[in-house]
Structures are given as C-alpha cells and as structure tokens.
C-alpha cells in the first residue's frame, strides 16, 4: 500500500524496509460528523498506514478539520474508527488520546494564560516524557519557558503546540494545518520538525501549502463536499497539475487567491 517512489524524502529508505502491507494504524469507515445539527463530515472512509505521512487534502471548508475532530470525538460523530486494531468511535476524547494519539490543532490552541512550561507540563502523559527531544527541536521555547504562551509569536505558539504532541510517545499524530499563517522561515522549521517526527510515528496531516505537502506527504486522501474523492500515493496527485486544480482548486504553484498559502511557500 505504502510505496513512496519519491527520492527526495530522506525517510524513503526506512519506509522501504517496512513490510509492504502493514496493518493501518487508523481505519476510518463511514464517518459522519455533525456540528449543531449540521452535517460537516459525510460518509468518509480512509486508512492511515502505520508509517509515513498521510495528507488529508481538499479545498477550504471541505471538512478536513471536522474529519480530524470527529476522529477524536471532539464533535458529535457516528461511524467506525479503528485505532491500532480496536474501535475508538465510542470513547471520549481523552481516552482516545491516552491510547497514543498526539493532536496538533488548527490555530494551535495553546493556553494563552499559561506559561510555556505549564503548557508542556499539562501535555505530559508518559512517565518519562521526551523533554530532551523537544528542547533539542525547539531551543527557542527553552529560552521562553517562563513566558505566557499568549505573548508568543504565531510561530512560537505553533512550536508549543507541536511540542505538546511530541513530548509523549505516540502511535499517531493528527496535525491540522501546522503552517497556517506562518512566515516562510518558520514554515521551513515546522516542516523539518514534522519530517523528523515522521521517522518514528505515522502522521495524518491537514495542510494547504503545496510545497509542504510535497516535502512531507507519502500518501494523500482528498475530500470534496465532505466525502473522499481521491486516495493514493502523493506523487500521483502532486505530479498531475490537472488533478491538483480539480481537487484542491489551486495551480500546482502558489494560488494567487490564497494569500496564506502564497506567503507561506518557502523560497
């Protein structure tokens, strides 16, 4: 299933050594999600393999974030969600997370009135969290540990949010638009951090920035109108400008209409 043919990925080799058909870490079947009675996710089915980065793509407002939130039980949902071999679609959010899911939400959602250290302490689930790893990845945060998270820049807040997910040993990361609204330099740093993380843990990634997708994604799942319309290797989609235009509504370069994406593309 997972057969990345892209050579620029430094992980390619390690992934190649995996058995060709691993059990998916996350299986989603016929997932429906509702917010205030309105259907926002409709009959979505896909798998996230046990390795590599699976990108969940689609135009704005298509239900990508809602899909992630339904998987976590953050919005009312029905359908089958199997995580690491057992059903989790009836579990409350905290129990799902405790089974080994790291969540990096859209808009970062750091606790503005807590310090950086407090934000991180709160996220620690393991008896021995990977503080050293996080400190190595984000040296900036070490310096600012006593600062209130609300006073950090957007990029620094994103690092706090990523660090919260990376502190624990997870079996899956759900990462929602990690580069949204960040400067090109920070986008690069975030991308590299995710790339490093992907070496040890599978990631389901929602992302708008095509460059970042190219850099990270092994497989893609495309949503349209709340449903899955395309599943396959990342290259199959990303190398086909017509498909990109059709599914993502952007040209394979930067979309002039989407300033966020435009500004965030690394040079």
């Amino acid at each position: 299933m997972t057969d990345p043919i892209r050579t620029e990925s430094p992980r390619t080799e390690s992934i190649r050594t995996e058995p060709a058909r691993t059990e998916p870490i996350l299986r989603v079947r016929n997932l429906y999600g509702r917010i205030a009675g309105q259907q926002v996710v409709e009959d979505v089915s896909f798998d996230v393999p046990g390795t590599g980065v699976t990108a969940l793509l689609g135009r704005n407002g298509v239900g990508k974030t809602s899909t992630i939130r339904s998987i976590l039980g953050l919005i009312e949902r029905t359908g089958e969600v199997t995580f690491a071999g057992s059903r989790v679609d009836r579990l409350p959010t905290h129990r799902i997370v405790q089974r080994g899911v790291g969540y990096v939400p859209e808009d970062r959602e750091v606790f503005a009135k807590l310090t950086v250290t407090e934000n991180l302490r709160l996220a620690e689930r393991d008896a021995h969290p990977n503080r050293a790893l996080v400190e190595a990845l984000f040296p900036d945060l070490v310096q600012r540990r006593a600062q209130l998270a609300g006073t950090l820049s957007g990029g620094q807040q994103q690092m706090v949010s990523l660090a919260r997910a990376l502190l624990n040993t997870n079996r899956l990361l759900l990462v929602d638009e990690p580069t949204k609204g960040l400067s090109p330099k920070i986008v690069g740093e975030v991308t590299e951090a995710l790339l490093a993380a992907a070496a040890t843990v599978p990631i389901l990634l929602v992302e708008q920035n095509l460059q970042v997708i190219r850099r990270l994604a092994d497989r893609v799942v495309v949503l349209s109108g709340g449903r899955v319309v395309f599943t396959g290797d990342a290259a199959d989609l990303l190398d086909d400008p017509e498909l990109i235009q059709r599914y993502l509504g952007v040209h394979s370069g930067a979309d002039p209409a989407d300033t966020t994406t435009d500004a965030a593309v690394p040079a």
Binding site: L74, H94, V97, P105, K113
Partner: peptide
Amino acid sequence: GLIIRAGVENRTMVTALGIDV
C-alpha cells in the same frame, strides 16, 4: 490547579491532551 486553569481557558483542548477534565 494547572488542569483547572487550562480548562477555564479551553476545556476542549485539555481533553484533547488526554486529560479527563
């Protein structure tokens, strides 16, 4: 105390960190 302060700000996110709020 930490959980309560965080929960006052954003209860959903506390849950999403695996904490039984």
